[in-house]
C-alpha cells in the first residue's frame, strides 16, 4: 500500500466514523461534533483530489459557520422529550433501506465502466483560473446564488424575529 492510499483509507475511515457518529450518537451535541469530524474528513478528500480552494471553503463555511449555526439551533430548541426524538420507531426498516441503497450503489459503481482513468493524472486548478471561471463563464449562476443567499437570510430574519404586529393585536 502506498502513502497516498494509506492517507485515503485513513481519511475515508474518519469520514465514515464521523457520519456514523452523526446518525447514532445519543447526545445531540456529540452528533454535531461528529458532524465536524465528518466535514473535516471530506475537506481532506478534497485536498487529495487537488482542490485546495474547496477544502478551505469546506473548513471555513461547513465545519466553522454551519456547525456553529446547528449548535445554536440545538441550544435554542432544548426540550424535555429530546431523548425520545433521537431514534424513531421505524429504525429497523431504515437500516434495511440504507443497506439496500448502499449495496445497489456499490454494485452499480463496480459494474460500470468509468471514463477518464487512462492517463491517471490529476491537474491542480490554480486559484486564479478558478476565480476567473467563476466570474466570467459562471457569472450569471454566481449572481443568482448570491441573490438566493440574500433572500434566504432576509427570510430567515423575518421568520425568526418576534412579530410586533401580533403583540399590538393582542393588546
Amino acid at each position: 500500500m502506498t502513502v497516498a492510499q494509506g492517507i485515503f483509507y485513513l481519511i475515508a475511515a474518519l469520514a465514515v466514523a464521523g457520519g456514523l457518529g452523526v446518525v447514532l450518537a445519543r447526545n445531540t451535541v456529540y452528533a454535531a461534533l461528529f458532524l465536524i469530524l465528518a466535514l473535516l474528513a471530506v475537506a481532506g478528500i478534497y485536498i487529495l483530489l487537488a482542490s485546495e480552494f474547496l477544502a478551505l471553503v469546506q473548513v471555513l463555511i461547513y465545519a466553522g459557520a454551519i456547525t456553529v449555526l446547528l449548535l445554536f439551533a440545538l441550544m435554542l430548541t432544548r426540550v424535555g422529550d429530546l431523548e425520545e426524538t433521537m431514534v424513531g420507531a421505524q429504525w429497523p426498516l431504515a437500516v434495511v433501506a440504507s443497506i439496500l441503497l448502499v449495496g445497489l450503489l456499490i454494485t452499480t459503481i463496480a459494474t460500470s465502466d468509468w471514463p477518464g482513468d487512462a492517463d491517471g493524472m490529476i491537474t491542480r486548478i490554480p486559484f486564479e483560473t478558478l476565480g476567473e471561471a467563476l466570474f466570467r463563464q459562471w457569472a450569471v449562476p454566481f449572481e443568482i446564488a448570491s441573490l438566493v443567499l440574500l433572500i434566504a437570510l432576509v427570510g430567515a430574519i423575518v421568520l425568526a424575529r418576534d412579530e410586533e404586529g401580533d403583540v399590538e393585536e393582542a393588546e
Partner: peptide, 13 residues
C-alpha cells in the same frame, strides 16, 4: 456517506 445520511433522515425525529 450518502446511505448513512439517508439512515439519519429516516430515523432521527
Amino acid at each position: 456517506l450518502f446511505s448513512i445520511g439517508v439512515y439519519g433522515v429516516l430515523t432521527r425525529r
